[in-house]
Write a protein that binds this DNA or RNA. Structure first.
Lengths: 211, 211
DNA sequence: CTCAAATTAGCACGATCGTTCGTGCTACGA
DNA sequence: TCGTAGCACGAACGATCGTGCTAATTTGAG
């Protein structure tokens, strides 16, 4: 094979794509080297050679998932506008990402956060917490921008708003998969709409992008 | 030892109490027979003899956790009143239960729901889903009662309200443990208060029990 | 076509998984 | 006092875990 990044990188990428899918269902601990090797029809040792340890595999899997999340959730929303419009787009983008089944086990980071929530600190937990903080910050900053643009009441607490929006999104993820019922996605949509509408400066302020 | 259920039942109870604690941190799959035996200073086989299989152990652990949940969350709230007051008490009771650390890993059922969310169906998953549905139904029925007592607007959708309350509670659980920051519990309290206040029939309707 | 480097496979290790079996206590009922 | 039932134990099972070593295979560069 070529010196550096030809077949090897492709294989590594394929491994990580499958790893992220598996981990979204069975967790990053349920992600097992043998299982993963079987799923990709390759030997345990051949797969393992791409990573120095299981922890490295986990960290690489988180990074792969992060990139997928940015591509499927963040970027489309950022392209949709600014201020209040962006805030709403971020929420809708998340719900769409759940609906589309970007990860077979639901939101990767929701699963990972739940799994490492109360576990002892470590590199993997730290990375998960960091990703989650970034997402929360994206919501919060958008709220602040909307406020600066006079689209949200000055009485609004951006952190509180971000928390309530994220709460609706996360719960939609859990209940949608637990009961296989898309009604929960609609509940989240309604919750988001209500939160934004009630704190918008003008009652009829256009929240939806033209469609 | 006595013939039947003296020492045996005591031991079984001690096993399940520890099992529920462990599972709230490491999940029902992370709950291992050997680990549990070590934590209780008894042999794997001696412990295992109390349950026919690991799945039985898991189901018994869920049942133990359910009883603890009823005792620590549901019953105190039901005793606090009816209607809107009860609805608020249920939410506050949950947040207090998180704050008190009734389970070391946060809400047992939140962890279990997340763990089995996207897994293949089975007895354990079914039981978890059932418990979660019961809790959601408790919230929803309280909302309906409050509505029947004319404490909530007739325009309120009890299911929607229950979803939004539960969303705040669940997210408070995740973020509180992920960042070890009680501020998230306060955010949930504020979200609950806002939701209830905005849908109460009288703006100043007493929501807090006398304290 | 050849060679060296990169990639994968084969095999083995100690540990731990869930589970089974046989044994030895210990205390009550006869 | 003796038998018996409940309970816990130690040892061992096959399987799988993560992780090393070494040999075979593939592959791009000369």
């Amino acid at each position: 094979m070529p010196r550096n990044t030809s077949h090897g990188a492709k294989t590594r990428q394929a491994i990580l794509a499958t790893a992220a899918d598996v981990a979204s269902v069975d967790g990053l601990d349920g992600l097992t080297v043998g299982r993963l090797a079987g799923e990709l029809s390759m030997s345990k040792s051949g797969l393992f050679a791409h990573f120095g340890s299981k922890q490295d595999l986990q960290l690489a899997t988180v990074e792969e998932a992060r990139q997928r999340y940015v591509r499927e959730v963040i970027e489309p929303a950022l392209a949709a506008g600014t201020g209040l419009c962006r805030l709403r787009a971020l929420c809708e983008s998340f719900l769409s990402y759940i609906e589309r089944g970007v990860f077979p086990g639901g939101c990767f980071f929701a699963s990972a956060m739940a799994e490492f929530d109360a576990k002892a600190p470590g590199p993997v937990r730290d990375r998960i917490a960091d990703c989650q903080a970034q997402w929360m910050d994206t919501l919060e900053r958008s709220a602040r921008d909307a406020q600066a643009a006079a689209e949200l009441e000055t009485s609004t607490d951006p952190q509180q708003l971000a928390f309530e929006l994220e709460a609706a999104l996360l719960s939609a993820n859990w209940y949608y998969h637990l009961y296989h019922d898309p009604a929960y996605l609609e509940r989240a949509r309604r919750a988001v709409q209500d939160r934004l509408a009630s704190q918008a400066t003008r009652p009829g302020l256009r929240l939806l992008p033209p469609d």
